[in-house]
């Protein structure tokens, strides 16, 4: 299963980025192979409007099944994620990626 985190860096020690649409990076953790990958989303800074759906589209291309983030996606992005069937968990904005993963495993993150 591919789990994607909104993050301020590129590895499991990075701090989470509480934002969804304008997150700096995605950290992508593949639970099956235990491999960690990342995606640089900083080009989104150039978008005046509609950062949310655009980022959600990226998430689809990355093949994410689960998204873990801070405050959660806004309306448009939420629609995209729902269409793609991505599971969304929020409330991990103040953690590191590893802590967010542990919290997810422990079931302490809120499902949207």
């Amino acid at each position: 299963m591919k789990i994607v985190f909104t993050a301020k860096g590129t590895d499991m020690d990075a701090a989470m980025d509480p934002r969804f649409g304008r997150t700096e990076y995605f950290v992508i953790f593949d639970e099956d192979s235990k491999s960690v990958d990342s995606f640089d989303n900083r080009a989104i800074e150039g978008e005046a409007h509609g950062a949310g759906p655009k980022t959600a589209q990226k998430l689809g291309e990355l093949g994410a099944e689960v998204l873990i983030t801070g405050n959660g996606p806004g309306g448009n992005a939420a629609t995209v994620l729902k269409t793609m069937g991505t599971e969304v968990l929020v409330g991990a904005g103040d953690m590191t990626v590893t802590e967010a993963y542990d919290a997810y495993k422990a079931g302490s993150l809120k499902k949207v």
């Binding site: 409007h49 509609g50 759906p53 655009k54 448009n76």
Partner: peptide, 18 residues
């Protein structure tokens, strides 16, 4: 130019607010 139309896999999504 407004990110109001996105191609998502095999579908086209329109975001009316944008």
């Amino acid at each position: 130019n407004f990110n109001a139309v996105l191609k998502m896999g095999k579908m086209i999504m329109v975001f009316p607010e944008l």
